[in-house]
Design a protein around this nucleic acid. Structure first.
Length: 301
DNA sequence: GGGTTTAAAGCACCCCGTTG
DNA sequence: CAACGGGGTGCTTTAAACCC
């Protein structure tokens, strides 16, 4: 080590050791081994001929010279970060789009409020809701058309990572006039003679069918397919059949006089939602922040 | 056992002369 | 001129020693 100049990493090193008060913790924060950090510090101290920390039994204490360098680090490092940001901002502008999609249209009822909270922290990130990918979000994700898919059944795919978000409950909704309206809950058998009003996807794609009706050997007598949640609700109100929707999706329609919601089975039918991202692509900070935001909101009512 | 330093060894990189 | 390889350098890690 012939000559050494003061480098940015040295400022970071001083800042981190001072903040942590010990080498080991500082090294962990800087993603290096303690020994390597010790070498760096020793090298710096040796090259300038001044010790920056006093080694004491329980850690590291700044010397007056160290204090001066720390003050310098605190004024320089923010500028360095800012400089780096200003350079990379334009470059990453294109990648500052978050493309997301979900499994069903009704999700878009609660998504906007989450988006609003997200935009408060990341005003420059453009969030694009890829409506075309609804109903096939995983395929779209795999095809690189999405950054994030929000789904309620976990696909067995090696190329993706999932993060559990929250749970919701699927309930049967029916007209108060319906012959089953007085029940506390509905069992799969109750659907044998019924008309099920659902979105226009094959039954096999419906989690409720796969996990609730089908295991009991039940297929509804008739199935009507309607794509608009509002239309489904209107049909139910007119007592044309039973629909199964998320409780949160219909909560604002729940007026005892026009609509009843019954749990499926004794314990109700609960779905887990997951945020799915590609394993191969390192998630950006805003993508991670968005997933965390979704997860921390907890169960939807 | 918590912490740091010291010693030894591996690894990546660069320089530079040689070779075809 | 490009490819190859030896030598040197600096950084990191592991392991052991050391201190309280």
């Amino acid at each position: 080590m012939v000559d050494m100049e003061l480098e940015i990493r040295h400022l970071k090193l001083v800042e981190t050791i001072a903040a942590e008060g010990a080498m080991t913790r500082a090294a962990a924060r800087l993603y290096m081994t303690q020994s390597a950090l010790s070498h760096q510090l020793a090298g710096l101290e040796e090259s300038i001929g001044i010790s920056l920390f006093r080694r004491v039994p329980r850690g590291m204490i700044l010397t007056p010279a160290g204090e001066k360098l720390l003050a310098c680090a605190r004024s320089v490092l923010p500028m360095v970060r800012e400089a780096l940001e200003s350079v990379t901002a334009a470059e990453s502008e294109a990648q500052c789009t978050l493309r997301i999609s979900t499994e069903c249209y009704t999700c878009y009822h609660w998504l906007p409020s989450r988006l609003k909270a997200f935009q408060a922290s990341f005003p420059r990130v453009e969030v694009e809701i890829v409506a075309e990918a609804t109903r096939r979000p995983i395929d779209a994700l795999l095809a690189g058309e999405l950054d994030l898919a929000i789904v309620s059944d976990l696909p067995a795919q090696a190329a993706i990572t999932s993060c559990p978000l929250f749970e919701d409950e699927m309930v049967a909704i029916l007209s108060p006039e319906h012959r089953l309206a007085h029940r506390r809950n509905l069992s799969p058998r109750d659907f044998v003679a019924e008309r099920l009003i659902t979105y226009s996807v094959p039954l096999q794609q419906l989690g409720v069918y796969r996990q609730f009706l089908h295991p009991a050997g039940v297929t509804p007598a008739r199935v009507s397919r309607v794509d608009l949640t509002e239309a489904i609700i209107e049909m139910v109100k007119a007592n044309l059949g039973i629909a199964i929707l998320a409780r949160w999706a219909i909560s604002r329609h729940l007026n005892i006089a026009t609509l009843k919601a019954l749990p499926l089975g004794r314990r109700g039918f609960h779905r887990k939602w997951y945020a799915i991202t590609m394993k191969s692509r390192r998630p950006s900070t805003h993508l991670r922040a968005f997933v965390e935001l979704l997860a921390e909101r907890g169960a939807l009512v």
